[in-house]
Design a protein around this nucleic acid. Structure first.
Length: 467
RNA sequence: GUGGCUGUAGCUCAAUUGGUUAGAGUACUGGAUUGUGAUUCCAGGGGUUGGGGGUUCAAGUCCCCUCAGCCACCCCA
């Protein structure tokens, strides 16, 4: 017996225990509901693709991060995001899909990065994209989806930072730095982190930019204030450059539309320093930070691109999309103690008083389930205190007790674990009285009309609507 | 991929600085309690001190390698 294999997982890969998996599934369910509420439809693609598909862009960085290997005669790789597979997917299926095409895709991706808190080698991305339109309406909608997502998950204090690459690129053009836009933007992105001096230094070291050119760009750093004030200050900087002016008007359109639907400056801010993301962004860009935990980084980001699938088709496919960082968000929610300590997926547990009554318990359970109340029957006729302890530790809302006396009288005791209150109810007529009682208690929180409550407990809400 | 910090029971930490059989709290299983989840008391299971090698009469403790986690780069969700 000494040659047992040590159970272990690869660096950056992890197991998920029920108490982690339950909120994880809830989060995914929430994201799907928000996406569907805008008409996005689901797709899926393979985890493995031909390397030439995934490496097409050929950036050394993504190459280094990709899990890649030979399988027989084929050079294959695991997808490191969902956008490149989407490009291939759309190029291959464009005729059947029709444009515009709005899809969501929730699936794992793999990157050979060095792991850190909230950063893993296998993680889930929750992407949504709108392909085949240049309309500003899609840029606006993308911001609204991000807002609804964050609210539905339960956040109120978050900042969606919005910017437009055209503003940045226009300003670079204006100051004669169009050639070295990538290193300049990369440095600019670090502005809030390392400060103006260090950014200026990095720009001069990594490009041929002169001090005055760098100064010109870093004027952006001085742009501060409310969204309205920032837009005003940008005007003189952009004037005279067609690209920058176009970007500015798009930025203004996004902000104004968001304000119209009630999103305030508290949750959406113009931030001219955000530039990040892959080189292919060409218009509106979004980043989302948690006010209470900004160090975790962006939890939802994306932007507009001119031509998604140019590597795979001659058809020009513009689009915009964003991605929710589910694992990072979950890590943040854990440190912010936003996750309930539930280790069960059921609402109530039926105590097994004696195995002779198993039939009665199973009948009661299926009546409850048919009414939408998730019910578990304890498998053994163990001592009551042990069954109660189990129910308590797992986080059931209520325990149902029916011994000889109750069953003879067609009754059941309902004990509410949060306050210890106990109520005797009738099980006659298909347990209607019991179901009504449990339904009212379990779903009363649904009177809360916030989007978060509605979507978070979507299933319960639907149940109540039908009832 | 580069540089650094850390690693003792499921979790949080002890172990007189190299000295005998690695302890405690908590969690888990059972009992006290054959109709009721806090608490209390009792008992039990659980460790090749992350893994391998070396120095030494003697290693959880010192050295090397390796694995994993974390931090800063890189990049990004």
């Amino acid at each position: 017996m000494s040659n047992l294999i040590t159970p272990r997982t690869l660096r950056g890969f992890r197991d998920f225990l029920p108490e982690v998996m339950i909120p994880r599934e809830r989060l995914i369910e929430t994201a799907k509901q928000v996406y569907r509420s805008y008409g996005f439809v689901p797709i899926d693609t393979p985890a493995l693709e031909y390397s030439e598909i995934l490496c097409g862009k050929g950036s050394e960085e993504t190459d280094r991060q990709m899990f890649r290997f030979d399988h027989g005669k084929h050079d294959v790789a695991m997808r490191f995001d969902l956008t490149v597979p989407l490009a291939r997917f759309v190029a291959q299926n464009a005729n059947e899909l029709g444009m515009p095409f709005k899809r969501y895709h929730i699936a794992p991706v793999w990157r050979g990065e060095r792991p850190q808190a909230g950063r893993y080698r296998e993680f889930i991305q929750c992407d949504f994209d709108t392909i085949g339109t240049r309309s500003i309406a899609s840029d606006i909608e993308t911001g609204l989806v991000i807002y609804d997502l964050m609210r539905a998950i339960g956040f109120e204090k978050f900042s969606i930072r919005v910017n437009n690459r055209k503003v940045l690129n226009g300003l670079l053009e204006k100051s004669g730095l169009a050639e070295s836009s990538v290193p300049v933007l990369r440095a600019l992105d670090k502005l809030p982190k390392i400060g103006r001096e260090a950014v200026a230094k990095e720009m001069q070291e990594s490009t041929s930019a002169t001090e005055s050119q760098v100064d010109e760009i870093l004027k952006l750093a001085e742009v501060k204030g409310s969204n309205e004030e920032i837009l005003k200050q940008l005007e003189p900087l952009c004037v005279g450059n067609e690209l920058a002016e176009e970007g500015l008007s798009q930025l203004r359109a996004v902000v104004e539309a968001a304000n119209t639907v009630g999103i305030t400056d508290a949750n959406l801010q113009v931030d001219v320093s955000i530039a990040r993301g892959l080189d292919y962004y060409t218009g509106t860009i979004y980043e989302t930070f948690l006010d209470d935990l900004p160090t975790i980084g962006s939890v939802c980001s994306g932007g507009r691109y001119d031509n998604l699938a140019q590597l795979y088709t001659k058809q020009e496919l513009p689009g915009i999309g964003a991605s929710l960082g589910l694992d990072r968000l979950l890590a943040a929610m854990q440190t912010l103690e936003m996750l309930p300590a539930t280790r069960t997926t059921a609402d109530v547990m039926i105590v097994q008083f004696s195995k002779d009554h198993l039939q009665s318990y199973l009948t009661m359970a299926s009546q409850l389930r048919a009414a939408g109340i998730k019910t578990e029957v304890f498998p053994d006729a163990k001592k009551l205190n042990q069954q109660f302890k189990y129910a308590d530790r797992r986080g059931f809302d209520a325990v149902l007790i029916a011994g000889d006396d109750e069953l003879a009288a067609k009754k059941v005791q309902v004990k509410w674990l949060s306050d210890g209150s106990q109520t005797e109810l009738s099980t006659e007529g298909g347990s209607l009285e019991l179901i009504n009682f449990l339904g009212n208690k379990l779903f009363e929180s649904q009177d809360d009309n916030s989007l978060g409550q509605r979507v978070w407990d979507g299933v319960k809400w639907v149940w109540k609507k039908l009832w």
